[in-house]
Simulated assay, not measured.
Amino acid sequence: MAHYFIGLTGGIASGKSALEKAFAAHGVTVADADLIAREVVEPGQPALAAVVAHFGAGVLQADGRLDRAALRARVFDDDDERRVLEDLLHPAIRARMMAVCRNAPGPYAIAMIPLLTEGGGRTAYPWLDRILVVDAPPAVQMTRLMQRDSIDDSLAGKMMAAQATRAQRLALADDIVVNAGDVAHLQRAADELHARYLALANAARVP
């Protein structure tokens, strides 16, 4: 079971998924907050019941599953409602992520948390030993986001502005990988960090 934990984060379209794959290629378990966020709102889960209790049955599809588009429309321009949703979901997501990481094989595991900075940083995730930030120039993020989601620069700008600033993310970082589009560089960075994290995890192992 893993005993050393890395938080992986970065801005939208910064290359988090590509770096996640590079670590996974080394056999490292990555607990993905986005995937876990879907798991905790499956039918029958307490978090889904809590969401419906607050937002109403209108956020459900006919089959009883969460209607993400309807919920997104409810909270996108309403900061108070978005905070309510976060308060309902984040504790369940954090608990599940920690369980996945602690039960991972190998000496260390990675928790990929796109909104780590916005979600409370180290205070919300005190069990993280280090934080790795994937950084990309804002212009590169904008271009990737527009291409990835087939959106214009106005919407892309709003999506980026809704997140923490680049400076706020970097202030949390123990390690930084700059991803300006060179896949080979990203792979080399993952290889080097994997070796470093193995060494740190082995040094931290309790005799």
Rank of each mutant, 00 (worst) to 15 (best):
L88R: 07
A73R: 15
V84Y: 08
L60W: 10
I151W: 08
V183F: 09
F55L: 11
D32C: 06
D78F: 09
G106P: 02
E39H: 07
D129E: 08
R130K: 15
G15H: 07
L19T: 01
D149S: 07
V134T: 02
D78A: 09
R169H: 11
P43N: 02
S14I: 09
L128Q: 00
L200Y: 00
L170Q: 04
D191V: 03
A57M: 05
D129I: 01
A49T: 14
T29D: 00
P107V: 03
A69M: 06
L60H: 10
H194G: 05
R96M: 08
P43G: 01
M1Q: 06
K21G: 11
I36E: 06
L115P: 03
D78Y: 11
A124C: 08
A124Q: 05
D77N: 15
A156D: 05
A25E: 13
K21R: 15
A164V: 06
K21N: 14
L48G: 00
M97Y: 03
A180I: 11
V100Q: 08
A95S: 12
D32L: 03
P138T: 04
R148M: 09
E42W: 07
L116Q: 12
V178Y: 01
R130C: 00
V59Q: 08
F55C: 09
M98R: 11
G44D: 04
G121A: 06
E20Q: 14
G64H: 06
M142K: 15
D129W: 01
R94G: 10
P107L: 05
A184H: 13
Q187S: 14
R72V: 11
A13R: 04
V75K: 11
L48F: 02
P126I: 15
I151P: 03
L170R: 03
D80C: 07
P137H: 15
V100F: 04
M146L: 07
R82G: 09
H194V: 00
P138C: 04
I151N: 04
A49S: 14
D80V: 14
I36Y: 04
N202I: 13
P114F: 12
A203V: 00
L145W: 02
I131V: 14
D135F: 02
P207H: 04
L145K: 02
A37Q: 07
R144G: 05
D78L: 09
E118A: 02
T117N: 03
A136M: 11
A73W: 13
P114E: 10
R96I: 05
L193A: 01
A164W: 05
P207S: 06
V51W: 12
L66F: 12
L198R: 05
V183T: 14
R83Y: 06
Q187T: 14
L170F: 02
F55M: 10
